[in-house]
């Protein structure tokens, strides 16, 4: 799990909405890429951006990425097995598994895709103050303040949630409901905490809503903002720059024969 870490860096100062939109654009682009070159470039560029623009040491980024690297690899292995059994082409084979080169390429780009998407998400979370995210959703995206602050209150509630889960588990154990018994029960664990957790969350929501309204949220007058987020020139440069880089990159890759659009169904 990763959380926002306060720092003063180029990346930290960027408007959350801009960051989010860029991530979405890039996600779409690399999802449409047949070959692994673009996801790989994205991965490397994001890494670089995190180090230089976000002032986060590369070691720390990679450490936080451990789990996701693992997941990406697990996913690739799984796809290898599934496709290998289908036996598309016969260029490569081990035991009962057969792959065509195309298979291997698309599996590799799938894995790279997952890894670079996770990396972007990670950078986003680490460099974005949730408060700013909500503010820019309200100010730049026209989200209503009630929704924005409701979401913020929910997010505020999360750290206590972990404690809450522990408390509920402990309370049930002490009162004689047993946990962690057998594989089946363990699988059901998320569901068993869910109901009490939802109840306490809803109760808390009720109280927060009362507190918010008793301080005037949602009254029919305009609202001012003490702190504001805005999209400034640097944000536009950042966005424009990123787009330019991608256009150029795709151009080069196409020229080098390493990029083709794929919509997920034109492989076979």
């Amino acid at each position: 799990m990763f959380t926002y870490e306060w720092k003063d860096s180029f990346l930290h100062r960027r408007n959350p909405i801009i960051k989010l939109s860029l991530i979405i654009i890039v996600t779409i682009l690399i999802s449409l890429s047949l070959f692994p070159a673009l996801p790989l470039c994205t991965f490397l560029m994001t890494l670089l951006l995190g180090c230089i623009g976000g002032k986060i040491p590369i070691g720390i980024i990679l450490k936080k990425m451990r789990v996701f690297l693992g997941i990406g690899i697990a996913f690739m292995v799984f796809m290898l097995i599934m496709k290998g059994m289908d036996g598309g082409g016969d260029t490569w084979h081990i035991w009962i598994f057969h792959w065509s080169s195309n298979d291997l390429v698309s599996i590799l780009s799938l894995g790279m895709r997952i890894i670079s998407i996770s990396l972007m998400s990670l950078l986003f979370v680490v460099t974005t103050d949730p408060n700013d995210l909500v503010l820019s959703l309200i100010l730049q995206m026209g989200l209503s303040p009630v929704h924005g602050y409701a979401a913020l209150a929910a997010y505020r509630f999360l750290p206590t949630l972990q404690e809450e889960i522990e408390n509920i588990k402990l309370a049930q154990e002490i009162r004689g409901i047993e946990w962690d018994k057998g594989v089946l029960r363990r699988l059901g664990t998320p569901l068993r905490i869910m109901l009490p957790l939802l109840c306490s969350a809803a109760r808390r929501g009720e109280r927060v809503a009362a507190a918010m309204e008793s301080r005037g949220l949602g009254a029919d007058i305009d609202r001012s903002y003490y702190k504001r987020t805005q999209i400034d020139r640097a944000d536009w440069f950042f966005a424009g720059g990123t787009c330019l880089i991608y256009v150029a990159l795709i151009g080069i890759l196409i020229h080098a024969g390493m990029f083709r659009f794929s919509f997920g169904f034109n492989i076979k």
Binding site: A150, A154, L161, P190, L197, A201, R204, G205
Partner: peptide, 30 residues
């Protein structure tokens, strides 16, 4: 307001449960 906040809270809990599930089910899915 009450509906919005309660839904936000409930949704946040669902989000947490999903996160736990993601980790729990990951090994299973492979």
């Amino acid at each position: 307001t009450k509906e919005v906040v309660i839904v936000a809270m409930v949704a946040a809990v669902v989000g947490v449960v999903y996160t736990i599930m993601d980790y729990l089910y990951m090994p299973l899915s492979s």
